[in-house]
Nucleic acid binder design. Structure first.
Length: 631
DNA sequence: AGTGCTGTAAACAACA
DNA sequence: CTGTTGTTTACAGCAC
């Protein structure tokens, strides 16, 4: 449907390889109107999509993929005989699925979908997903039931071989989880008001499913079965490899299989796999044997993993929705602990390492662990009014703390292909001021960009040109000759001169700034979700080079100073250096421009990460990064 | 509508 | 000759 047309409006990816000199190969579509097309902080005026909707939609995409995966797993269980010749059920890595052509980028989404369209789409997706989830759960339970029955029959023929306490436990857990999950998920969706369930569609399975196989029955069944049933010995048999299967299904980012969305049984989720006739067929054709048993176990594990993943996504969605709708954070419907280790790690690593000496708002440190572990933490304080109109570079306009936001979100910007909501000028300045000497060569500025932002690891010709352009254009950037070349410094006075009027506590301004911040953060978090879904375990704690912090005082108002800071400065609560002091600060031209010592390696690491992420044209990266590293 | 800011593209020169 | 660095111009989009 609309997804089809999306591919035509894909955000441009100008060939990164210094190909600017070629003809008017204008991939940009809009000519020079670069700012407009850029997804991160720009606000395209037509086909506008609110951040809430974007987030929502993205979450649904993730859930959709997870659900498809579940369904495929279900298909693999339902017809074991037809499967064994071929591959096991196709493993769909979420990361790949998210990158698939069927998945459209936020930029495209912004362009092609109007809010009403999106809402309709979302609701449609929700309904479909709900139904399919229910079908799946139902099928799983039936499947388990069947399995147990057959095992019970065969158990009379086969001697008991070993105790199965842990299996029983796993089985019970599985059952409980399945039922919990389905109920919670449905509740979730209904509570969020995202889905107006058609009567009889969503509620019926909710009632019937627990009755189909109630836990106590199954427990009893299991006891009877396990009393005489060996299972363990046939885990790996006839190509059914538990280890492989499980690992494949749980590590979504491992395989490189495009999502076989077309494999999707039926759009309404009414798979033909589990009609009663089919069940009878299963009953007769698949009498108990080792393979069936093993397959059942495998499937249980697979489903368990997937449920965890699904639960995680669902909780994230709910947290996000709760956030965006200003609801008080409801008690989490999922009691199962989420994988939040990386969240805590990230929050910590990003909160206080930025060398600007700012008293960073403790959003990251104190915020309850949110599912959005990578998204800009400013989201938590700024999403309240974020649904309003979007402005470009609002962060810049309203003195958003670039250093503060970078401090909080630098991991995010590092890994997510999101354009930072700051101007080139402010970024350049930030790069320069981060260094002890407050001076950088052009190449070092390049390296800073690539090191700090995944976004700047591609289209290098474009943004490098912009950087040079900014350096030359703005008087605030001063080129200083050095023995070994030239370095760039910042004339803070000049920089301040060109700043727009500062916030003076005007409520309007504050509100605008907040809302503006919200957009940037939202958009960023939205893409963070993308990235995170793709490589949930990627977030390796990368250290910021804090050595530069020592030589750097807090540098004044930038777009860079935090909001709090602005208020503080107006309230004269903190002594601050005047711009004159900055500009008069003697620029010490260093003798040896430390030539990108630590630059290349981190970039390489990040390149590896980024290639696993979402960037569609990662080939660009592969080509460019070595060049950048060697330069 | 005008203005300023910004981003992008591109031409050009100097230099290693 | 090629690539990098730096300057400049042109143009478009956005916000005010």
């Amino acid at each position: 449907m609309m997804v089809e047309s999306a591919s035509e409006t894909i955000r441009s990816a100008p060939s990164g390889q210094n190909g600017v000199s070629s003809l008017s190969n204008q991939p940009d579509g809009g000519g020079g109107g670069g700012g407009g097309r850029e997804g991160a902080a720009s606000g395209d005026s037509n086909g506008e999509l609110s951040p809430v909707e974007l987030l929502h939609f993205q979450q649904q995409q993730a859930l959709q993929v997870a659900r498809q995966f579940l369904l495929q797993q279900a298909a693999g269980l339902s017809s074991p005989s037809s499967n064994e010749g071929k591959q096991p059920s196709v493993q769909v890595p979420v990361s790949v699925a998210m990158m698939s052509p069927q998945m459209i980028t936020p930029q495209q989404m912004q362009q092609i979908l109007s809010p009403p369209q999106l809402q309709a789409l979302l609701q449609q997706q929700q309904a479909i997903m709900l139904q399919q989830l229910q079908e799946y759960y139902k099928k799983q339970q039936e499947q388990l039931h069947l399995q147990l029955l057959t095992q019970q029959q065969a158990g009379k023929q086969q001697p008991k071989e070993q105790p199965l306490g842990n299996k029983q436990l796993a089985f019970q857990q599985q059952l409980l989880q399945m039922q919990q999950l389905q109920q919670q998920h449905l509740l979730n969706l209904q509570r969020q008001g995202l889905v107006s369930l058609p009567p009889g569609q969503g509620t019926v399975p909710l009632q019937t499913l627990p009755q189909a196989v109630c836990p106590s029955d199954l427990q009893q069944l299991w006891k009877e079965v396990t009393a005489a049933q060996p299972v363990e010995d046939s885990i790996k048999q006839e190509g059914l490899d538990l280890t492989t299967n499980t690992s494949n299904s749980t590590s979504f980012s491992a395989a490189k299989v495009s999502p076989p969305i077309s494999h999707h049984p039926l759009p309404n989720g009414q798979s033909t796999m589990h009609t009663p006739r089919r069940d009878r067929h299963l009953n007769t054709e698949h009498a108990l044997d080792d393979r069936s048993t093993a397959q059942c176990r495998v499937q249980m594990q697979v489903v368990q993993q997937l449920e965890i993943q699904l639960a995680k996504e669902s909780e994230r969605l709910q947290a996000m929705m709760a956030h965006l709708h200003m609801r008080p954070s409801e008690p989490k419907p999922f009691s199962q602990p989420l994988n939040l280790v990386s969240s805590a790690t990230l929050s910590k690593s990003t909160s206080d390492t930025f060398p600007d000496g700012l008293p960073h708002p403790p959003t990251s440190a104190t915020a309850p662990i949110t599912p959005l572990r990578q998204g800009p933490s400013v989201i938590s304080s700024s999403t309240l009014h974020s649904v309003g109109p979007i402005r470009r570079r609002n962060s810049e306009k309203f003195c958003t703390p670039i250093s503060s936001e970078l401090a909080q979100n630098h991991e995010f910007y590092k890994n997510a292909d999101v354009r930072p909501p700051f101007t080139y000028a402010s970024l350049i300045r930030q790069a320069i001021l981060e260094t002890p000497d407050r001076q950088l060569t052009l190449n070092e500025i390049y390296n800073w960009f690539t090191r700090m932002f995944a976004y700047f690891r591609r289209n290098t010709a474009t943004w490098k040109n912009a950087v040079r352009h900014n350096l030359s254009l703005h008087k605030c950037f001063v080129r200083v000759e050095n023995v070994k070349g030239a370095v760039w410094t910042v004339d803070e006075h000049e920089y301040q001169k060109r700043r727009p009027p500062k916030m003076t506590g005007s409520p309007t301004l504050v509100k605008n700034m907040i809302s503006g911040l919200g957009y940037g953060a939202l958009n960023a978090s939205y893409q963070a979700a993308l990235a995170e879904s793709s490589f949930p375990l990627l977030n390796s704690p990368t250290m910021i080079n804090t050595s530069s912090a020592s030589g750097m005082l807090h540098v004044g108002h930038d777009d860079v100073s935090s909001t709090v800071e602005q208020v503080n400065s107006n309230g004269s609560s903190s002594p601050r250096l005047s711009p004159q002091q900055y500009s008069s600060h003697p620029v010490h031209v260093k003798e040896e421009p430390a030539e990108a010592e630590d630059d290349s390696r981190p970039v390489s690491l990040l390149a590896t990460a980024t290639q696993n992420v979402t960037i569609p044209d990662d080939r660009d990266l592969e080509e460019e990064l070595p060049v950048e590293d060697l330069s």
